[in-house]
Simulated scan of single mutants.
Amino acid sequence: MPRYALLIEYDGTPFAGWQAQADQPSVQGAIEAALARLDPGYAQGARIAAAGRTDAGVHATGQVAHAELAKEWDPFRLSEALNWHLKPAPVAILAAARVADDFHARFSAVERRYLFRLVARRAPVTHDRGRVWQVLNPLDIGAMREGAAHLIGLHDFTTFRSTMCQSNSPVKTLDEIRIDQVAIPKGHEYRFHLRARSFLHNQVRSIVGTLERVGAGSWAPDRIADALEARDRAACGPVCPPQGLYLSGVGYPIDPFEAGSA
């Protein structure tokens, strides 16, 4: 059966997360319902696999999944057909690509990239409501960058790991944390870019929530190193809410969506 990679964007607000659930709406369920209009296998319960399972309320601009179909499709026609059947759900197939039979959206990935958007201003957000985390007071970006530097590299991230995490090991390599500051009307947006081969459950939200405490002046930057060394969930700062988090990209040895990559 031909296998296709799908590049996916979605607003996670109305969903209980990526993963299909019997009694709640999910992004996976929406895409599989669209596929069921095109392919008999999905009408009978076939499943797609994704690079990462985002939680309820988390968004994506670069999620990747793969699907096996009963017949060959022109990738452009496949993405157009899926987008038609996805309406009105806030899910879009940005691109589709024919891939090798051994391509796996999750297991073939060599890196994942997340963006977290944090807005600091007194007035409520309007256009970005449900898509950013808002705090009222400005943050010290220099202090947050200093604190974030302690997290780069290979570490035991038990402190920044949900107690519900199912990963076999808390040891991960965090390749990058970049924090940018953008002026907005009467405030600032802070954008946290994190990159790693894989992440623990709630790792990004735990890190950003803790760095916000540094930026607010409640934590000294060096306390991040102490929290990491503690290897104790109780040493973590607050876990920030999901609405500011985006799965922004997934890296593969060969980009399946790059022209001529096959």
Rank of each mutant, 00 (worst) to 15 (best):
T61Y: 04
G57D: 10
A89S: 14
G52R: 09
S79R: 07
E80M: 07
R47I: 11
K87Q: 15
R77N: 12
A46V: 07
F76H: 15
I48S: 01
P88C: 12
P90L: 13
A89N: 15
W84V: 10
D55K: 11
A60R: 03
L94I: 08
A70V: 11
A65D: 09
A50S: 15
I93T: 05
P90M: 13
E80W: 04
R53I: 05
L69C: 06
A60G: 11
G57H: 12
P90T: 12
D55H: 12
G62I: 04
A67K: 01
A67T: 02
I93Y: 02
A50C: 15
H85G: 03
Q44L: 15
S79P: 01
A65C: 14
A43K: 10
I48G: 00
H66T: 03
N83F: 02
N83Q: 11
G45L: 12
A70D: 14
G45H: 10
L94W: 02
K71R: 15
G52D: 08
H85V: 04
K87H: 15
Q63D: 09
Y42I: 10
I48E: 01
H85C: 05
I93L: 11
I48L: 06
A49S: 13
A51M: 03
E80C: 06
A70L: 11
H59C: 05
A89H: 15
L78M: 04
L78W: 00
I48V: 08
G45T: 09
Q63R: 08
R47S: 14
T61D: 04
L69P: 01
R53Q: 11
L82E: 01
A65W: 04
A65E: 03
A67Y: 00
A70R: 12
G52W: 08
N83D: 12
V58M: 05
N83K: 07
N83I: 02
A65I: 03
A56M: 10
P75Q: 07
K71M: 07
A56K: 14
P88G: 13
N83P: 10
A60Y: 05
I48N: 00
A89R: 14
D74E: 15
P75Y: 03
W84T: 12
F76Y: 15
A46D: 13
A70N: 10
P88Y: 13
G52I: 09
A67R: 00
A60E: 06
V91M: 06
G52T: 07
G45D: 09
Q44C: 13
G62V: 08
T54K: 05
G57E: 13
T61R: 13
Y42W: 11
N83A: 06
W84P: 01
W84G: 03
A70Q: 14
W84R: 14
V58K: 02
T61H: 06
A67D: 02
L94S: 04
H85S: 06
G57R: 13
A51F: 02
E72Y: 03
